[in-house]
Nucleic acid binder design. Structure first.
Lengths: 162, 162
DNA sequence: GCTGAAAGCCCAAGGTT
DNA sequence: AACCTTGGGCTTTCAGC
């Protein structure tokens, strides 16, 4: 098993529960020491592979019943900057830059009432984004990419303890 | 400050770094004891407000250079079930059910080569989803909804220590 | 990769509104 | 009754070697 496999296995385990999975737990399941795990995690954080750790929040249950998708068009020039600025709009929870098609930016946002919707639309327009369409999201889930190191961890779990 | 405010402040702090922010740290910044924080986090987990904790991964840097958005149509009846089943397709990292419009499901997926793309398209079709369109995603970021309890934590930080 | 000091977590009992 | 705090025992992390 090479280092890359260890990294994949770490990512796999972190995706199960990034808050409570301890380095020690990972060490036991992957078959290296806990400090090795720590070092590798730091490396991946430094390289930008791991960008941070977030709770997955059910916005509806948290009192933000309005979940919206704004389909937008941004000028080719400066699109990237726009996407970055859109992050600062209160309520925005996701941004995707799409390559082909004229609707090249998708903004996902949450709010409590129609005033929020109006405000977000206005602020996006002010930034220079043309809101082509907006849709209500019924449910959304971020699915961890569990297949990263599944087989690696799996194999190890199947091995008898020496 | 009521309990709901404490919860919002907790969510705010968890969104900064859900892996390393300790209950004690939160306790100090919010102004209650660490065990109170723990209890409230457990409550929110039980109620489903907090669904889990995930690392944000830069798929490109992690070696998954293909990031795709599949715009799909699902029959009204059984759409929810389809969305759930789509989670099991290898490479799928996000699912959104959209309310209005005929393209009522968006699937976000990652892969390494065109074979992956073909496979994912096939598997989605097999499930009963009609892939209306697919787009390349240039960049995507999940933006924590930082405005949850920002002002609450902020106010407290400004207060002089008694 | 290991080890000791420091910090965090959990639990149970007790206090306050 | 619900909620919070305190204190003790155990586990985890971190930094230097």
């Amino acid at each position: 098993m090479n280092g890359n496999d260890v990294n994949k296995a770490i990512l796999y385990l972190l995706q199960q529960d990034s808050r409570r999975t301890t380095t020690q737990e990972m060490a036991e399941r992957i078959g290296v020491s806990a400090s090795a795990i720590r070092t590798r995690i730091e490396q991946m954080e430094d390289e930008g592979i791991i960008r941070g750790y977030y709770p997955s929040i059910d916005y509806d249950k948290a009192g933000l019943q309005l979940h919206l998708l704004f389909i937008c068009r941004a000028p080719e020039l400066g699109r990237e900057a726009l996407a970055t600025e859109a992050r600062t709009v209160r309520g925005v929870v996701g941004i995707r830059e799409v390559l082909n098609g004229s609707a090249n930016v998708q903004i996902e946002a949450v709010g409590t009432n129609t005033d929020d919707v109006a405000r977000i639309t206005d602020e996006l327009s002010d930034l220079g984004l043309t809101v082509v369409n907006s849709k209500l999201i019924k449910s959304a889930s971020v699915q961890p990419f569990d297949h990263f190191g599944e087989q690696i961890v799996g194999e190890l779990d199947d091995q008898p303890v020496p």
